[in-house]
Design a protein around this nucleic acid. Structure first.
Lengths: 114, 114
DNA sequence: ATTGTCGACTACGGTAACCGTAATTGGAGG
DNA sequence: CCTCCAATTACGGTTACCGTAGTCGACAAT
């Protein structure tokens, strides 16, 4: 199911990351361990750029434990902007859950193929 | 919120697509209209390769309305393999919903930074 | 002081996905 | 014919993803 992870599940994990970053700082190795604990492998080459990107976008803010060297742990926590993003995501997750898992229909207008 | 759509929401739509393809065939323009109806724009350059990819992976099967030309509508419906993928996704969506929206904690072991 | 190991991040080169815009095709109306 | 409309295709540029190998500092053992 490697394709599935890349195509879709990785995005789910991104939501998890933001969610966790809301309550406590997260860092690369922690995420990697966390996912492994759930049976998934994500490589550094995927994860670190991902965290950096979220920081660039202003969703996460970085705090390096100063007094440690160049390879020191980088801790990311949610910014105000990140919180807004997370709000939107929560709404979307709920919508997805209702429709795809519970099977609730939305309004339905343009329904069907014909 | 363009970044958010590309980074995360597109994957949610992929799940929607599989879900819909379970109950009736879907095709490119329909998906585009459906998403627009919900306030999102996805361009052909993104969507068509995406559907083709899902077909290559065996999640969707294609049926073109024969007797129509080269640009005829391409209808995709869920395969058996696609149904399995969708099952996995439903589980993951539920998990995501429980944790991120409802705030339920999983086991928690490796919790925290310290 | 030297060596070893471990926890973390960095570098990097190749592949795949995403994006918008423009082009193409066939059918239906006028 | 000519035009318009519904659909898909083509394509070139940008961004994301991947695995593997490299680097650096701290700490322990000898």
């Amino acid at each position: 199911m490697k394709e599935l992870e890349r195509e879709i599940l990785l995005s789910f994990w991104k939501v998890h990351i933001l969610h966790h970053a809301e309550s406590h700082p997260v860092f690369g190795q922690w995420v990697i361990r966390e996912l492994r604990r759930h049976g998934y492998e994500v490589s550094p080459g995927t994860l670190y750029p991902l965290l950096a990107r979220m920081q660039e976008r202003g969703w996460l803010k970085l705090k390096v434990d100063a007094s440690a060297g160049l390879r020191a742990r980088k801790e990311y926590s949610l910014t105000k902007k990140g919180r807004k993003v997370l709000e939107v995501l929560r709404g979307q997750v709920e919508e997805l859950y209702r429709e795809v898992v519970l099977g609730e229909e939305e309004d339905k207008e343009t329904q069907g193929t014909a």
